[in-house]
Structure formats: structure tokens, C-alpha cells
Design a protein around this nucleic acid. Structure first.
Ligand SMILES: [Zn+2]
Ligand SMILES: [Zn+2]
Ligand SMILES: [Zn+2]
Ligand SMILES: [Zn+2]
Lengths: 176, 176
DNA sequence: ATGAGGAATGTAACGTTATACAATCACATG
DNA sequence: CATGTGATTGTATAACGTTACATTCCTCAT
């Protein structure tokens, strides 16, 4: 609902967010996938973990831990920081959510189940975030890393800019 | 956690950084380059800004704002957070330093003067950080971005892993 | 069933990182 | 000199994250 754009965009099937889509299925599908995944791996998909993932799935943008905590409180869960951080740690550890380092905030994974190195595009105008598959840095930076003998274990790839929806609405705001 | 060195580097002659080099010139050259650059762009390279850059240049790793603040205090500068953050903001804004988002910490730019999109390799064992030129994400993620109409303005590319020096010393610690 | 042990949760207190806003200073202009 | 303007500094507080410990909830072997 946060994107809320009524613009049609180019009808192309984009590999990542920003595109107009039937958001109703996002939450349901995401929760179902997580449930399946946890069952398969023998992980406990507890109520609070499920709720946090649901909260994240409701938005295609990153939410701070304390924003999540507020919503947990409203739902009758604990109201202290560890409640949110523990659930988030679980989700991140098992690939159901990601942390956006640039924002100190979290977002539901858009490609659960697949083993991936995520890359993100963050709109500075509407705060929406899209996740792309990214062999990217592993390939390009990876070459440089191999050259000097650095062993990459994890990558953070985040692009900040203006999403197609916002660019259309405010083409002038170019400078940073 | 950023304050106080906890890792035992004393064993070797390589304090920080991946490659052996004459570190004496790092600080002097970096300060000289910054001075020139500020003069050319009519920027005020004030004592506190200069000091912060000097502090950063002394290490090839990222320092937290409060670690820097501690050192500023020791040198007789102000001791309140904004003193450090304002100097850091200046240095980052003008390409003399970078923020490592993954660490919430700062490092002197290794390629001042050049207009670049930096990428970093962070050793999780010795905390050293190496900066690489990175057309990387602009090229690879950039392709994906163009495909959907996202305009990239800034990129964060950070690889976490084990540097060549540490890999040599502790080849066993592979776990992720 | 039952009690032991480990995982998960609830709660309080604390630590770290970052910014908002008011006050002040430096300087140019009338 | 008086005054407006923009940069700089000082103070308080917001935002983000962790530690510690008591309690509850599973699971499993007696
Ligand atoms: Zn959706
Ligand atoms: Zn946008
Ligand atoms: Zn050096
Ligand atoms: Zn290392």
C-alpha cells in the first residue's frame, strides 16, 4: 500500500519490485513460503516470528526495529527491544528477511527459498525498496578480491536513487 | 565495541591493511592531497576536520565516530558527538572519507581526488578495510536498474570476509 | 506422568550511534 | 556602529542496538 501508485508503468514483467502488482498475495504467499521452509528445516516459526514477517511483508520498504516493535506491542506481544530483535535475527539468519544497512532497517526477503546474495534499490523519495538477485558483487568485486586473496563471505550491495514511479512524478529532483 | 583494540595484531609487523607498504607516507600524502583539494574547491579545511582526517589516515580500518571523538578530546578539541559527526560529514561530503555502513564507522578515502563509487572489503578477523574502485554495481546492478527505470545516485558495496593476511594465519576459521 | 535440559519469551537496564535545535560567532553591508 | 546573513558550536535528546536475568514453553528420556 505504501507504493500506492496508480500509474501503469510499462507493462513489462520486472524481475523486482516497484512494479504495480496484486499486493494481496504478497503477504499470504510470503507467509506460506516461510511456513513451508521452516517446517522443512525443522525451525520453529513461532507467533512472534510469524507476526514480524507479516508486518514486513505488508510493505515493500524497510522498517526499523522500533517501528516493528510498536506494532508488536499493538498486537499484544512483548514491548521491549529484544522481542523485535530476536525475531528479526531469526528471520535474517534463515533468509526470510534482510537488513538494509544503509537504513538500519529490515525488509522481507523477496526470493525466499533461493540461496542468494541480495542487492537492493532504495528510493530516497518514497522509501520503497526492491530486491534483486545479485551474483553481482560476487562476480565483479569477486574478481578483484581473488586477485588479492580476499575471501568474500557476505556482501552488502545497496543502490540509492529514485524509483521509476517517483521519477515520473518528480523528474526535476535530480541533484543530491 | 569500536573503542579499544581487542585483536592481537602485535605478532606481526603488519599493523593493518592487506598489503605491506610504507605507511609513513599514507598520513602525510593524504593530508596534503586533502589540503590541495580543499583549496581548489574553496572549502575550509579547519583544524578539527584536518585532525579527524589525520586520525582516519593513521589506520587502514574503519573507526566509529565515538572512537574518533575520544581522540579529539585527547587532542584538546570538543568532546561532544556533533564535533566528530560534523567533521565526518564534511569529509564524507567532499570525498575525503567514506562511511562503512556495515560497521557504522568511517575510513579515509584511499583514492582522493578521483570521482568514484567506492567498494570495500572488510576483514572480520582483523577489522582491516581495503577500498577498491568500483564501477562494479553501477555496471552490473546498473543494468538491472536501467531495465526497470531506477535511477541510481549512490551505491553501497561492501564485502565481508577474510583478508589474505588472516587467511594465512587462520585458514581453519571458515565458518560463516 | 514427570522431571531435566534447552529453546524461546518477557522485562528492565544499559550502551552506542546519530540528529534537532538553540545559541553564538564571523563577516559583509548600509 | 548597527544589523542581517550564514556558518559554526553547544546542549539536549532521539534512534538504534545489546546485555542480563527471570520465566515459560517444548521435547525427550526416564
Ligand atoms: Zn506486494
Ligand atoms: Zn520512489
Ligand atoms: Zn598505510
Ligand atoms: Zn584480516
Amino acid at each position: 500500500m505504501t507504493s500506492g501508485s496508480s500509474k501503469g508503468l510499462e507493462g513489462t514483467a520486472t524481475p523486482v519490485g516497484f512494479a504495480h502488482h496484486d499486493h494481496g498475495t504478497c503477504v499470504a504467499d510470503g507467509l506460506a513460503a516461510a511456513e513451508t521452509r521452516c517446517e522443512k528445516k525443522n525451525l520453529r516459526f513461532t507467533p512472534v516470528r510469524r507476526k514480524v514477517l507479516e508486518i514486513l511483508l505488508q510493505e515493500h520498504r524497510a522498517l526499523g526495529a522500533y517501528t516493528i516493535l510498536d506494532r508488536l506491542r499493538d498486537e499484544g506481544f512483548g514491548s521491549q527491544p529484544p522481542v523485535a530483535y530476536r525475531a528479526l535475527d531469526f528471520l535474517v539468519a534463515h533468509g526470510l528477511a534482510h537488513k538494509i544497512e544503509r537504513l538500519n532497517a529490515f525488509i522481507a526477503c523477496a526470493h525466499p527459498g533461493e540461496n542468494h546474495a541480495p542487492a537492493f534499490m532504495i528510493c530516497r523519495l518514497c522509501d520503497s525498496v526492491a530486491e534483486a538477485h545479485s551474483v553481482v558483487a560476487k562476480g565483479a568485486l569477486g574478481t578483484a578480491a581473488r586477485a588479492i586473496g580476499f575471501r568474500i563471505e557476505r556482501t552488502v550491495v545497496e543502490a540509492e536513487g529514485v524509483c521509476p514511479n517517483c521519477a515520473e512524478k518528480a523528474p526535476e529532483k535530480v541533484s543530491v
